[in-house]
Design a protein around this nucleic acid. Structure first.
Lengths: 263, 263
DNA sequence: GAGTGGTCTAGACCACGCG
DNA sequence: GCGTGGTCTAGACCACTCA
């Protein structure tokens, strides 16, 4: 059925490669299926944590074989957008109730143990509506002067203030976000974003530098202004590579380190 | 043929899950095939950059279907151990002649462009045979006092000394490594390790901190001792998770940053 | 026992690289 | 035109989960 479907498919099969075209112009079926599933995820047809239809059902819906759906889901699972569980089904990934508490936080305690040094204690210093500076606007793909929510908080690990973070969020998507909301929610902030605003962060880029703190940062972290600290600038993206958060964090690295695995 | 092979296979098919056993004790065929291919890679049956047998040939050799070999190779490719090229074949991955010049170096220039700011200029300060300290021995899984090669070098990017690195290598595997050898080789040092010592680094762990340089480091990087710098401790591994290099780098981050992608 | 994802197979055809 | 990896299919059976 691959080459001559009798029932009209809603998506192009193998589009004939145009003669002198320069762009790729060829997309395997499973990529098209992946795109369709992605659309459903993005549209909220299935919410974070929920079960999506079985491979057989999706195969029937899209009029392809189970193997093709499988390959599409394989890629989505590799990108951490869904989670497969043998015997149960495939679930929409969520930052809540996950295997690791903070998926995007790569700061680990020096002393062996995993990141289970108790939950990080959050302290929200401010959360206000402001206008985007040129740089914030650029990184969030907004226009200068657009409304953004700006928040500052301190994370305390094992009783030591270790991280001070400034967070910028597009105003339109996070309308009404309050300091109370940020402080009271138990669990990852990204899980709260899913629940309260329907915004799922699926990937992020970080730029890391060594810096000295300014007076205020030094005071918040209880270190001197000559203590070297890690500066971590993170841009987090939802589906479609749309940036939805800018985060500038300053990390103490006297008892913790940023861990990275290369391959 | 999967369940009742008539010709005796050299590897266990589905080993019957022992009754009250606690360990997994079940390995899919493709994982066993992957293990066999891995052994050949490790044994040097095919050298870095070389073509490995086609999927059909391997399927015949191992008496399984092409699809099973494909899945094994898929995983090896995902781990960057081999590289597939449609129409040509599957090649053993190499640090030489790769798409990115330095696969494990995550330092990028701030000003947009890719890492093509010209090649890094290397300056080897020393390269000597010493005895492993307790900590070096622990990280390289050697015994305290075992012979190790210790080297120090400075990398200059765009005319600015940006990185000073101390490198420790197990003496037994890198016998005869000289400062000349480290300095004269064109291209990634890891490529030289492949060529000269048959040691392939396949993955690495990094621990990152912010530090202040000591007098010597400051002088080498032409900064003051109060300039915050990135400390990057890397342990690089060959096959079988065997550590083969410890590297302690100090990075200037005034014109560059450490880039990381999370997902 | 029914349903899910996971493995394995065999065969067909497609896109690519190269002689 | 041939060989390579890449896609797609259809069907069988296995391992896991849960009622």
């Amino acid at each position: 059925m691959a080459s001559t479907p009798t029932t009209a498919p809603e998506f192009p099969h193998h589009s004939v490669s145009s003669s002198g075209a320069s762009t790729p112009s060829f997309s395997p079926l499973y990529q098209q299926i992946k795109g369709l599933i992605l659309q459903s995820l993005q549209a909220g047809e299935w919410r974070p944590g929920e079960l999506i239809p079985s491979e057989m059902e999706l195969a029937a819906r899209f009029k392809v074989s189970q193997g093709t759906v499988r390959k599409a889901i394989d890629e989505l699972a590799a990108e951490n957008l869904v989670m497969r569980r043998q015997g149960k089904g495939t679930f929409v990934a969520t930052h809540a109730a996950q295997q690791v508490q903070y998926r995007f936080l790569k700061l680990h305690p020096d002393t062996g143990d995993l990141q289970k040094e108790g939950r990080a204690q959050r302290s929200i210093l401010e959360c206000k509506r402001v206008r985007a500076s040129a740089e914030v606007a650029r990184l969030l793909q907004l226009k200068s002067g657009d409304a953004v929510i700006q928040a500052r908080r301190v994370l305390t690990l094992s009783g030591t203030p270790t991280i001070v973070e400034d967070i910028w969020l597009p105003g339109h998507a996070f309308k009404g976000l309050s300091a109370e909301q940020m402080g009271s929610y138990q669990g990852p902030t990204y899980a709260m974003f899913e629940l309260e605003f329907g915004v799922r962060m699926v990937r992020a880029d970080e730029k890391i530098r060594a810096v000295l703190p300014d007076e205020e940062q030094a005071q918040l972290l209880q270190v001197s202004t000559s203590t070297p600290l890690l500066s971590v600038e993170r841009v987090a993206y939802t589906y479609n590579d749309t940036p939805m958060e800018l985060r500038r964090g300053i990390y103490r690295t006297d008892t913790h380190h940023y861990r990275n695995e290369l391959s």
